[in-house]
Design a protein around this nucleic acid. Structure first.
Lengths: 199, 199
DNA sequence: CTGTTTATTGACCGAGAGGTACAAAAGCGT
DNA sequence: ACGCTTTTGTACCTCTCGGTCAATAAACAG
């Protein structure tokens, strides 16, 4: 009944996420978005209203993707601590060649408290991470991989803070091995008091 | 022999630091700087060459100030862990009404790896913090405040990551008490295995 | 094939960013 | 008082940002 769109909206949001991730929100220009999405400026504004409107969509999309990857990683069978290690590695960006940090962390740093959209997105992501970590730790305790008197909630909060901190540390260009060592050490502590494996 | 400047340069850098801290580098306009410093645009550019030139000075100034406050806090007599707690609190911004996060962390998040000036400043600050924490932990072990088998270097790295992470968490507007609890928990763990006090 | 509806393109626009130019002013030595 | 030097204030400039708007194109209903 009318002309159809030449591009998929979700796909465009994904591309926009990449563009915004490469620099800050403020430093990203409409021109870069046009080039990155491969569509005309008119279509851009016709579809997404404003630069900020598109940005808001990328925030939500990023959280969605993180939720997916985190769930997938931690649902793998085997040692819960190993799974936790894998989850942390991917969250921090240890698997990437040149990490750009966590998109949401960058957004929080740029926009701060006043920005409710960013605040909401970060609250969603951070609580998701903490909850997932908590579940995993709980299971580790049950399996005897971690000491039974572990304060699961406290440790989950610590791990969240460490993940956030590490994503920043890794973004500075400091050597990746230092961050790897840091994460390894934390996990080693977790295991250090473990009971004998039941298997 | 010539007309003297009407303002102190260092003082102006301090004011600029406030201005840049209130929003991102990219979002800060020359106009805001002129108003924040209370000088004319001509003087601004005559003295600091460019917006970026001024920004670079604020980065160094911030690191200098952090070094001062950290040294002052941790040199206080008494329990080393208490001193550590105080240092962490001030670094994270728990003492401030509405924390704007760590200026350097914000800069890293905004500019990323490619920016060598920001990378250098962050390396300076982060190593300073880690080293100071390490010294303090070492002393805590000596004093019998922390368990003697503590991996000081590992723990210092962890605390650095947690401080960075907490500065982000606090900036989102999430409740301050959660971050306080997190920090308290970490310090409690440090003490948990302590030997009997020698005094 | 025509009409209706919606998408796309790219020219256009007001505003403000980031910075420059230059005349006037304020010191200082003599 | 008079140069000489450096700072200051303000007008000005260019360029790009962020966005709008006709004109055009593509689909489908009848």
């Amino acid at each position: 009944m009318a002309r159809p769109m030449k591009f998929e909206k979700n796909e465009a949001v994904g591309k926009a996420l990449e563009v915004f991730w490469n620099s800050s929100y403020a430093a990203t220009t409409p021109q870069e978005l046009v080039e990155g999405l491969g569509i005309g400026k008119g279509s851009l504004y016709n579809t997404f209203s404003s630069k900020r409107g598109l940005y808001d969509l990328t925030l939500a999309e990023y959280v969605r993707r993180r939720a997916e990857v985190l769930e997938a990683t931690l649902r793998r069978p085997g040692s819960r601590i190993d799974a936790l290690a894998a989850g942390i590695a991917v969250l921090v960006g240890l698997d990437m060649a040149n990490p750009k940090g966590c998109f949401i962390v960058n957004a929080v740093a740029e926009h701060g408290e006043g920005d409710t959209v960013v605040a909401d997105a970060s609250a969603n992501l951070f609580e998701l991470i903490k909850r997932t970590f908590g579940t995993c730790l709980e299971a580790a305790v049950q399996e005897g991989e971690a000491r039974s008197d572990l304060d699961v909630d406290q440790k989950a909060s610590e791990l969240l803070a460490i993940v956030i901190g590490s994503s920043i540390l890794l973004r500075t260009g400091g050597d990746k091995s230092a961050v790897e060592g840091l994460v390894d050490g934390v996990l080693r502590e977790l295991r250090s008091g473990e009971k004998a494996s039941r298997s």
